[in-house]
Nucleic acid binder design. Structure first.
Lengths: 182, 182
DNA sequence: GTCTATACAGTGATAGAC
DNA sequence: GTCTATCACTGTATAGAC
């Protein structure tokens, strides 16, 4: 059951919801049909559990940099620059491309909540930076947070399209330039 | 044949490559099996033609704002702010999430070329803005161009995840703030 | 050029044995 | 709890008639 969830997380990351079949999950988890349908009502419920867990992992990973000691600029730079498997893309952002995920409120909810949390958390850090004078009073935390999150998600898209991490790194560096040159 | 290509463009946009079946294409195009397999060797070749066409359309649409009269700032703002069906996402960027597209050089090529063109074109406009003094000498055109493209692509991701255009608009506005506040 | 027939693996699930 | 059997259907394609 644990393996079913973890295998589903991996497959959703790699192939999305539409591209992931129950059979593939069972194969990857080394479990039979009966096992999967005993623990879960079907593909959708299993995916929901897997997405929720991936969302929690993403939040924990982001909090490692965003909640660390240091100035707002340092924390944001650490978050932007941390080790990432860029060409694999974002395990959560990837699901936003999936029509069946977006169409099903149960599946979309954990995706929506993860990004809502991330944007709020980034906005807090930006607001911290305004208090300390790192960022100008004119900077809008909500907008800036959305921009930061979007650069990461878009960076993944550009990198996968190019089959190269370069566009991701350029986009992140361009953002850091813009944030710093204030 | 024309209808086959156009239907494939629509379906790829909506459901991606993995989620689009030959049968669905035929249904949408109101064409039979024989017709499709007469004109194309299979799903992959038809998709390649469809992606190439969508890429050309994206370039033409972008050039409408980026190649218009006006300052660099005006052209970039017009491009960022033009009418978009945000919740549908980007017809090209969407394909970067598709494992079978990224894995097949024939399918990935038009996606890669479209974004390579877009980043170059944006970099030209940024360079124009440096010449006119709108942007500071310190601004790196390649990086900034990647950031702009990433904000759009990431904005789509955040918007679809939230089932709302708001995150897209916030991210774009945040970018405009950062570009303008120089 | 387009149609119908056919093929064979895979999808997503249910049923019942153990 | 897990296994195997079965099912109706779809995915992707080939073959051959018209």
């Amino acid at each position: 059951m644990e393996r079913l969830i973890r295998s589903t997380q991996e497959l959703l990351w790699e192939r999305g919801y539409v591209g992931t079949s129950p059979k593939a999950i069972q194969r990857a988890a080394d479990a039979g049909q009966g096992s999967m349908y005993h623990h879960f009502t079907g593909k959708a419920e299993l995916a929901k559990v897997a997405i929720e867990r991936s969302g929690a992992e993403l939040r924990a990973a982001a909090e490692e940099q965003l909640g660390a000691d240091g100035t707002a600029t340092e924390r944001i730079s650490a978050y932007l620059g941390r080790e990432r498997d860029v060409l694999r893309g974002c395990r959560i952002g990837r699901l936003a491309a999936d029509p069946d995920v977006v169409a099903d409120p149960e599946l979309r909810a954990p995706v929506a909540e993860t990004f809502a949390w991330l944007r709020d958390r980034l906005a807090e850090v930006v607001a911290d930076g305004k208090r300390t004078g790192e960022f100008p009073e004119s900077l809008d935390p909500q907008r800036t947070a959305a921009t930061i999150a979007a650069v990461l998600q878009g960076g993944y898209v550009l990198a996968r399209a190019a089959d190269s991490t370069e566009p991701f790194e350029l986009a992140v560096q361009g953002l850091i330039d813009l944030l710093g040159a204030k």
